[in-house]
């Protein structure tokens, strides 16, 4: 405050100091004196009078000081413009730091939330994929079991020829039953896929399976464990093959590493049965 007063003194100093100093000095200052007559100076005219270039050392110094001021002004303005955080006060810096920390926390929270939903979506799609895989597998299994899909695998091949008599439907059905008992998973006779609802019936023309006439020789293909199917199931004494031979047929099962069952059956939608709720049974 003291220096401020000091400067204000300097400014007020001008008023008393100058009139005393002016009159004895240079002729150019006479104009000052004339301008400051009690009649009152006219602002613009005084400015004009003062602004007239006069070659004097004092004028030169004034110009020099003004140049210095202009220079410093521009330099300072530029400095202020280029200065970043270094020009800020402590409180401003603390505020900025605080805001930055706040913003960081916000962004981190948002990132965590997004990460969480991403995980959820990923695991969701994983579960969906697993469900889809399971459904596909079930569909494949059921497709094979219901005769909707072609199948291949180890199994047996039996070709039954009629040599001396006609093999009745019941005997053929016995063969089928034996195969099923031995765990055959897919069965085909001639070009007909044999499914759960398949039946053999004697007609005048011969044996029909599922309404289609079968003509001998009966060429069976069955996918399953060959060891269980061939010697154990069909060739059991007094079993299916024995019945076939009694009926006048010939043939014996042959184990194969790879049996291809190509015949398929379209499965109709169940008309009356609907899936029971899980756990209801």
């Amino acid at each position: 405050m003291v220096p401020g007063e000091h400067r204000s003194e300097a400014a007020t100093d001008m008023i008393p100091a100058v009139p005393a100093a002016v009159p004895p000095t240079t002729p150019s200052d006479d104009e000052h004196a004339a301008g400051s007559t009690p009649a009152g100076p006219s602002g613009p005219r005084t400015l004009w009078a003062a602004g007239r270039p006069r070659a004097s050392r004092a004028q030169f110094f004034v110009a020099l000081l003004c140049a210095l001021l202009g220079f410093a002004l521009v330099v300072q303005v530029r400095q202020t413009n280029v200065e970043g955080l270094s020009a800020l006060g402590q409180s401003d810096l603390v505020r900025i730091l605080d805001e930055t920390a706040q913003r960081t926390a916000d962004l981190e929270r948002e990132a965590a939330a997004l990460e969480r939903s991403r995980q959820e979506l990923l695991s969701g799609s994983d579960q969906q994929q697993a469900a889809l895989d399971a459904a596909t597998k079930t569909a494949t299994t059921l497709g094979i079991l219901s005769g909707r899909l072609p199948a291949e695998g180890p199994g047996i091949e039996v070709t039954i020829t009629e040599s001396t008599g006609t093999i009745p439907a019941l005997t053929l059905f016995n063969v089928l039953e034996e195969m099923r008992n031995a765990g055959a998973e897919a069965i085909q006779v001639n070009e007909q896929r044999v499914v759960a609802s398949s039946y053999f019936v004697d007609t005048d023309d011969g044996v029909e399976i599922d309404g289609m006439l079968l003509t001998p020789p009966y060429h069976w293909l069955a996918i399953g464990d060959p060891a269980a199917l061939a010697p154990t199931a069909l060739e059991i004494p007094g079993g299916a093959m024995a019945a076939v031979r009694n009926a006048g047929g010939r043939g014996s099962p042959v184990a194969r590493d790879k049996i291809q069952i190509t015949a398929t059956r379209t499965v109709s939608e169940p008309e009356f049965a609907t899936p029971a709720p899980i756990g209801a049974g």
Partner: peptide
């Protein structure tokens, strides 16, 4: 501060009491 001196000088000029020496010193 220099701006202050400059305005003071301008005011003194308009008052008709401008003095180069005072301006220099005050500046």
């Amino acid at each position: 501060a220099a701006l202050d001196a400059l305005f003071g000088g301008l005011r003194a000029m308009l008052d008709g009491i401008f003095n180069d020496r005072v301006f220099l010193v005050s500046f």
